[in-house]
Design a protein around this nucleic acid. Structure first.
Length: 429
RNA sequence: UCCUCAGUAGCUCAAUUGGCAGAGCAUCCGGCUGUUAACCGGAGGGUUGUAGGUUCGAGUCCUACCUGAGGAGCCA
């Protein structure tokens, strides 16, 4: 019988056996302090020379960082042990003595850690981030599953661009050009006409040569799409959704947030309603801060940071100029120069996490926009069909998981939010 | 794609004006019964990113290239 480290507190006074890896070891005379991790936690195992067979003590002496081992001993509470519990070791079996491990408990540079990402994942901080990421993904699924949404998967291999603007990864599809999906939205629109409320959740690809703390070539996106919903409806959905996700992480991953030293007080404020400002109102604010960005163009990175830091909750910016937005966005009936769209900017300077809109439901207007953007009408035949057969207003948005993880964990860079980041100039490991 | 900065031991970094290539950690050996990134003593470990140039002499100055980091634009 083996015990997981997370359960040792249920076995005080009992002899248990754990299996894991040596995280760190310190020696003191006839004592060996083994810090052992097993994926569920870490515990200090104390080996006293007089308590074990001489050959066992000698074997323990040979262990290096990340050596695999099976440790048997009695659990006791001890204030001197990290975590409050430790094991008095009676026996220890070595699985493998690890070779010289590259990642030591000392400082390392970013390039070195990325080169060793497959090993870096074992570090306490990276382990905590992986667990928080998982909780965020679980919360995302639970939110939609519990609110009447049907998961409808959208394809990763696609024949055409969803938004003509961004760069796509092109691949050979039996002699035809295909692209890795940059959004499931168009397919979501088809799905929501079947199930009413749908969402897709999966990897998304962008071949943009972006080299910033907020960009990856491959990232996870969750995209809900709701039939009959207007812009206001999805702004409400977005704030309920983001609040739910944040509160779930606060409840379920307290220990991990503590381990990465995340100050949770800003997160505790994340509940509806969120501030909502129009693009024009946002510009009034930016101009008082002295922005150089001309009205009518999209916000620059500095502008986004200003807006993001101006509120202690995520801020929703809506009704951007039509010209800088995608072809499928419904024009504002009160101002045809604006689109019924919205972006949500996370606080603390993290910036855009959500982008969404009400979609054009009139077939003639949509056709006009496709032509205006010089997109191939043939490729959008099926998309136009959605407006021919019982069209209804509908809206949706997309949320980038990595940016949310980055914000909730208060990270410097999205590369730590995903196990194996695909970045400009780095696809190893 | 553009701008800025950086490449010295396995890792993190020193090296004065251009003048003997150095430390901590890691590794190996020895010591210690309460360590928390332990400590103490000892040892091994180098084509200073690559190619060329200036100089009596280059880690240091110049040129090109390579690699990486930070940022911009674009976006989630």
């Amino acid at each position: 019988m083996y015990t997981y480290i997370q359960n040792v507190h249920e076995h005080i006074g009992e002899e248990i056996t754990i299996r894991g890896w040596l995280y760190n070891r310190t020696d003191k005379g006839k004592l060996r302090f083994l810090l052992v991790r097993d994926g569920t936690g870490t515990i200090q195992a104390v080996v006293f020379k007089g308590n074990v067979d001489p050959e066992v003590f000698e074997a323990v002496d040979q262990t290096t960082q990340e050596s695999s081992l099976t440790v048997t001993g009695t659990v006791k509470e001890d204030s001197r042990a990290p975590g409050g519990y430790e094991m008095d070791v009676s026996h220890c079996e070595i699985g493998q003595i690890a070779g010289e491990y590259p990642i030591t408990p000392k400082d390392h540079g970013t390039a070195f850690l990325m080169e060793n990402r497959h090993l870096w994942l074992r570090s306490s901080r990276q382990h905590a981030i992986l667990r928080i990421r998982h909780e965020i993904i679980r919360a995302v699924r639970d939110f939609y599953d519990n609110n009447g949404f049907t998961l409808v998967d959208t394809p990763i291999l696609t024949p055409a661009a969803c938004e003509g603007t961004t760069t796509l990864f092109e691949i050979d599809y039996f002699g035809e050009k295909a692209y890795l999906s940059q959004s499931g939205q168009l397919y979501n629109e088809a799905a929501c006409m079947s199930v009413g409320k749908t969402y897709c959740f999966g990897p998304t690809f962008r071949a943009e040569k972006s080299k910033t703390r907020r960009h990856l070539m491959e990232f996870s996106k969750v995209e809900p799409e709701v039939a009959w919903a207007n812009l206001d409806d999805i702004m409400k959905l977005a704030e309920d959704f983001v609040s739910y996700v944040v509160q779930r992480v606060l409840e379920e991953r307290k220990e991990e947030l503590e381990r990465i030293e995340r100050d949770t007080t800003p997160l505790e404020k994340i509940e509806p309603p969120f501030p909502r400002i129009s693009y024009s109102e946002a510009f009034v604010l930016l101009e008082t801060e002295g922005t150089d960005t001309p009205r009518g163009s999209d916000f620059g990175a500095a502008d986004e940071t200003i807006l993001s830091c101006s509120f202690d909750k995520p801020v929703i910016v809506h009704r951007y100029p039509r010209d800088i937005k995608a072809f499928y966005m419904q024009p504002d009936p009160e101002d045809s120069g604006s689109a019924l769209c919205m972006d949500m900017l996370a606080p603390e300077g993290y910036g855009e996490i959500i982008g969404g809109s009400q979609r054009i439901h009139d077939v003639d207007l949509l056709l006009e926009r496709i032509r205006e953007h010089k997109l191939p009408v043939d490729a959008f035949k099926w998309y136009l069909d959605l407006r021919k057969y019982g069209t209804v207003p509908h809206s949706g948005f997309g949320m980038g998981i990595e940016r949310v993880v980055s914000w909730i964990c208060s990270l410097d860079h999205v590369r730590e939010t995903i196990p194996f980041p695909r970045m400009l100039y780095r696809m190893y490991p």
